[in-house]
Design a protein around this nucleic acid. Structure first.
Lengths: 239, 239
DNA sequence: GGAATGCTTCGGTGCTCACCGAATCATCTC
DNA sequence: GAGATGATTCGGTGAGCACCGAAGCATTCC
């Protein structure tokens, strides 16, 4: 019924431990360099390079050159969805030993770091809240702060004046893998994250990118951002 | 972030031409024998047997023994969804050459044969219509006709008296792959299909399992079954 | 019981592909 | 320009696995 040829190629690309490990590492939405991916997958740089070339030419990954490094990332939400669906089938195979593991996944979905800013449900909720209050405009691959938004974040304690000589992008929309919606990156995103840590609203897990909300954060997000967090149920409501 | 091991195994299983061909052949929801699958994939029976054993033990396929034959089928909707998502990614890879192919897929989704009865949106709509009018009870892996349902189908022209010595299942629910809902199989399903052909409501495509609705069928399904077909948009509404 | 059919197991062959190290290319720093 | 860093290309090696035919097992028909 189907032209299976391409399907086979795609599945075969995922069906290798080294490649799958690299793609799994990229599932958080972060971009990583070839060397980082090589060491994560425990293979030599040359081998990794070959794998990455195949993955890019099959459009499973995309690559952007930045300075001397080449950053690889998942090419599209479609690819992420595919990897998730494969994972879902794989989870069926093993009886029930991986349930605790999935709790970790849930935590990652709830709140995690992406580079130097927040992602997951919490990251998306913050972006939504800023948009709802007309503090920001966030659409496909671009983001902007309104004047009122700049004042709001200044009062919140974010330092939004770019350091001299720093060409960093001010505000950018970053597609959230697990939510398939946008959260805020760039200097604005980084400063929100920094300030949340400073205020003890959030803490990081050791060795993972999981972010946890303190009770101070629970109150703070509700009072300042109008975001109601229910960590147990992983539900987020914007008032 | 993920235990990639099983994911790799699953993807590697799909990442082989022979296995993928066999699974693609099963995507219609039909069950096929080992020999049929072997010849479809152009491999020897022994090779096919090995592949099928792996696919079953990985729970991608399930197998049921019936008489001398072993019938293989897709193990769960989750697996079907995974294969679809892989196909979706594979379709991205090639520019736009496979668009016409997808029209064929749409036609299969709309109406197709499954063994000797109807499947696809049309098959599911008929099952829904019979349930809505309390002519049938259809739930997981079982189906039943009410007394009024038997009268209705008798008046429709279906011959529901089983031939003597025939142990065929009378009415059975059959999970529709593309719709993820049930359509009606067994003698009842076969007779509905036979009568629709007899009335010239439906025609088959040559060499495929695609079923097309004639204008007589368009009227008939609306007047007798209360099913409104809009083939262009592939939408089905039950009045 | 004997023949036919459907499927699986076994042993052996050959090809594909993941892997590495060394060399090369490209970019950035001093 | 020299040196450092990041990434790729190339040639060669080894292991895994798809494949087949022959033989064996199970079921059904005569």
């Amino acid at each position: 019924m189907v032209a299976a040829s391409n399907m086979v190629e795609v599945a075969a690309l995922v069906g290798d431990t080294a490649r799958a490990t690299m793609m799994a590492a990229l599932m958080g939405g972060q971009a990583l360099t070839a060397s980082e991916l090589a060491s994560l997958a425990h293979i030599s740089r040359s081998t990794a390079s070959g794998h990455l070339r195949k993955l890019v030419s099959a459009k499973l990954l995309s690559v952007t050159q930045k300075r001397r490094n080449r950053y690889y990332r998942i090419a599209s939400p479609l690819v992420a969805r595919m990897l998730e669906s494969i994972k879902a089938v794989a989870a069926l195979e093993t009886p029930a030993r991986y349930q605790p593991r999935s709790a970790q996944d849930d935590a990652l979905r709830f709140a995690r770091t992406c580079y130097d800013h927040l992602a997951g449900q919490l990251g998306v909720a913050i972006a939504d809240a800023l948009v709802a209050k007309k503090y920001a405009v966030v659409n496909e691959e671009s983001g902007e702060l309104t004047v009122r938004g700049k004042r709001f974040l200044f009062e919140f304690g974010a330092e939004l004046t770019p350091k001299s000589g720093n060409r960093r992008i001010f505000c950018r929309a970053c597609l959230d893998w697990s939510e398939r919606r946008y959260h805020i990156a760039g200097l604005v995103g980084a400063e929100i994250w920094r300030r949340c840590l400073e205020l003890d609203w959030l803490t990081r897990d050791r060795d993972t990118r999981v972010v946890r909300v303190t009770s101070a954060g629970q109150n703070g997000f509700r009072d300042i951002f109008g975001i109601c967090l229910n960590y147990n149920r992983r539900a987020i409501r914007i008032e």
